[in-house]
Computed example of a mutant assay.
Amino acid sequence: MNKLPPEALEHVANYFRTLSEPTRLRVLNVLGTSELSVGEIAQLVDSSVANVSRHLAQMAQHGLVARESRGNSVYYRVADPTVNELCDLVCGSVARRFDQVVSAHAAFVASTAPARRRRAG
């Protein structure tokens, strides 16, 4: 992001906005490195075909997924494999922060346990 012009930053913000919707993240997660039809994706993310189609259109607009028509079906795949790397990086960071919060909570509970036992007794 070093010295990017405002127009480029707007594109970056739109890219991240597209990734900010949980259903879209679930779609990317089920696609992984495979190729699936809209119906298969909808079933795997427990959503309607119409809803998944709407999300896929948004993701295709920002270059996250690519589509290919075959007969009566449309198949989608991750167009930019770096999106998987980005999601792995962010998920790892979130998991580490969650672990820190859990550890801090456990330490707090452990440090207050003797005081609670004295009051209960």
Rank of each mutant, 00 (worst) to 15 (best):
S53C: 11
S53K: 14
R54G: 10
H55C: 08
H55E: 11
L56Y: 00
L56K: 06
A57N: 12
A57V: 10
A57Y: 09
Q58H: 08
Q58W: 02
Q58T: 08
Q58G: 03
A60E: 04
A60C: 00
A60R: 00
Q61N: 06
Q61A: 08
Q61T: 05
Q61S: 05
Q61M: 05
Q61H: 05
H62C: 03
G63F: 02
G63H: 03
G63K: 02
L64I: 02
L64Y: 02
L64V: 01
L64G: 00
L64A: 04
A66D: 04
A66Y: 02
A66M: 07
R67S: 10
E68V: 07
E68P: 04
S69N: 10
S69C: 02
R70M: 10
G71K: 05
N72S: 15
S73P: 06
S73M: 14
V74K: 07
V74T: 13
V74M: 08
Y75Q: 06
Y75A: 07
Y75P: 00
Y76R: 01
Y76I: 03
Y76A: 06
R77V: 06
R77T: 07
V78L: 05
A79G: 08
T82G: 12
T82H: 12
T82C: 12
T82K: 12
T82E: 14
N84V: 12
N84A: 13
L86E: 07
L86Q: 08
C87Y: 11
C87Q: 15
C87W: 09
C87K: 15
D88E: 14
D88Q: 14
V90I: 15
V90W: 07
C91W: 13
C91H: 13
G92R: 08
S93W: 11
V94T: 10
A95E: 12
A95T: 12
A95V: 10
R97A: 05
R97P: 03
R97M: 06
F98C: 07
F98P: 04
D99H: 05
D99S: 09
D99C: 02
D99Y: 02
Q100I: 10
V101S: 10
V101H: 09
V101Y: 08
V102F: 05
V102D: 09
V102Y: 03
